[in-house]
């Protein structure tokens, strides 16, 4: 295997140790490589090798959790703009986790954060923002996320897109009937029924 490869026009900078190329189609790949290289240099594991994904460095998780709690606190005080700002920060922090950390965890965190932000948007009647955030939340976690499904349905309804909302809630019920969260199911079913009724009337 080692015997055959295509030599590529690559050069390496002696001081910054960054790699460059004279071949334009390669440049995106090379820039990705440099990014990864910098991420590796920031590691403090032995041998500077990415650790296995299973035990995650808890520092970042703690920070994200703190941010979420403070966001929730502002939300309760009805300081929605503040809450959105804090959630924003937490979302950025969660999505900037190094790539080799467990993706399941990232999903979980992003789902919860986007869900909270959607609720904060909804409290300010910013329906399109809420709908998008709820959709992201659902995309990250499809089952056991009744609130996310419900929020997007509600946002669509508020914007008068009844058919879309009804379709969305139908899909939601399919997922959630098999899911573990039975508590919120009634709410979702109620929304579905109201939408059907509104559609029948229109």
């Amino acid at each position: 295997m080692d015997a055959t490869y295509t030599p590529l026009p690559i050069t390496i900078d002696a001081t910054t140790k960054s790699i460059s190329t004279t071949d334009p189609p390669l440049s995106t790949e090379i820039s990705e490589l440099n990014k990864l290289h910098r991420a590796l240099l920031a590691l403090d594991t032995p041998n500077q090798v990415p650790p296995p994904p299973a035990p995650v460095n808890p520092k970042r998780s703690v920070q994200i959790n703190k941010l979420r709690e403070s966001g929730n606190a502002s939300y309760k005080k009805a300081a929605y703009a503040d809450a959105i700002r804090v959630y924003d920060l937490a979302i950025r922090m969660a999505s900037e986790r190094p790539g080799w950390e467990a993706s399941g965890l990232v999903r979980e965190e992003l789902s919860a954060l986007y869900n909270n932000r959607a609720q904060a948007y909804m409290s300010q009647q910013m329906w399109p923002e809420g709908a998008i955030d709820a959709e992201v939340s659902v995309e990250m976690k499809k089952v056991g996320n009744v609130k996310g499904w419900w929020r997007r349905g509600q946002c669509l309804r508020e914007m008068g897109r009844l058919e879309e909302a009804a379709e969305w809630v139908r899909g939601a019920l399919e997922f959630e009937r098999a899911g573990p969260e039975k508590g919120g199911l009634a709410e979702l079913e109620g929304l579905g029924k109201e939408l059907e009724a509104a559609l029948a009337k229109a």
Partner: peptide
């Protein structure tokens, strides 16, 4: 890229 880097002679190639 990996193999090119591995076989790269930095004394020549480093700019």
């Amino acid at each position: 890229i990996y193999l090119s880097l591995l076989h790269l002679d930095p004394a020549e190639a480093s700019e």
